[in-house]
């Protein structure tokens, strides 16, 4: 069973690397959204620094959503998903493998790109450690919660847009606590608030690691049979 799990994960990673789509495209999207921001609100450094954590989180969220719709759809369209469910791996673990693959090829590259974009928004130095930490904790939640939306819309026409709409509300806590962690460091709140935000974010992420596979598997069962 472990072997099947890693075979599936390795296959997804290999496909992501070969297609060059997925993660690279998400990082590109992230970069473009962040770069458009100053054109919209002006190049004022203080202003940019102030909105930087929030904008980085929102853009990261959108970039993660963008790649979500292919999570099960590609396997559904070519018939692989049927065969995957006929293996010995429970559907829940299939969802875990897919979501983990999504995080490794999309979430992680986005977190790596974030500090660079922080520089462009003049994010103050002390905000980087909590921001990166929060993103490392929060992005798995994006992948695992997103898996539910992707599973719900598998086989649906224009499912990508629908999946985004369905998942967005689930992302609200991640956004609030994620921004909270970085904001606290720049002096928005007292230091204690930042620690709290990080802990709450961690809790949300851990909960999503359970909720995502269960919900995703249930949604796939409902959709496929």
């Amino acid at each position: 069973m472990t072997r099947a799990f890693f075979a599936l994960l390795a296959r997804d990673l290999r496909l992501a690397v070969r297609l060059g789509g997925g993660g690279g495209m998400a990082v590109f999207f992230f970069l473009v959204v962040i770069s458009l921001l100053p054109f919209g609100i002006g190049p004022d450094r203080e202003l940019l620094a102030k909105v930087a954590p929030g904008m980085l989180w929102v853009a990261l969220l959108l970039a993660a959503l963008l790649t979500l719709d292919r999570l099960f759809q590609a396997d559904y369209e070519d018939g692989s998903l049927d065969l995957l469910t006929m293996g010995l791996l429970p559907l829940e673990l299939i969802v875990v493998a897919k979501a983990l693959g999504h995080w490794l090829t999309t979430g992680l590259p986005l977190v790596v790109a974030a500090p660079l974009l922080g520089l462009m928004l003049n994010l103050p130095g002390e905000a980087y450690p909590p921001l990166i930490l929060a993103m490392l904790a929060g992005t798995p939640a994006l992948s695992f919660l997103g898996a539910i939306g992707a599973a719900l819309t598998v086989g649906v026409r224009r499912g990508g847009l629908l999946a985004s709409l369905l998942v967005m509300p689930f992302y609200v806590p991640v956004l609030i606590f994620g921004v909270g962690a970085a904001d606290a460091a720049t002096g928005g709140f007292a230091g204690e608030a930042g620690r709290q935000s990080l802990l709450l974010l961690g809790a949300v992420a851990l909960a999503s690691l359970v909720l995502g596979p269960l919900g995703g598997a249930a949604a796939l069962r409902a959709n496929l049979r």
């Binding site: 290999r14 018939g79 049927d82």
Partner: peptide, 27 residues
């Protein structure tokens, strides 16, 4: 189950495809 769809990934080689299903379905 062999259905209408071939369940192949265009970027995976013939060998990789069979090896994957061998590991996944049969360990």
């Amino acid at each position: 189950y062999v259905g209408h769809l071939d369940a192949l990934k265009p970027s995976m080689t013939v060998m990789e495809t069979v090896s994957f299903w061998r590991t996944y379905l049969g360990s």
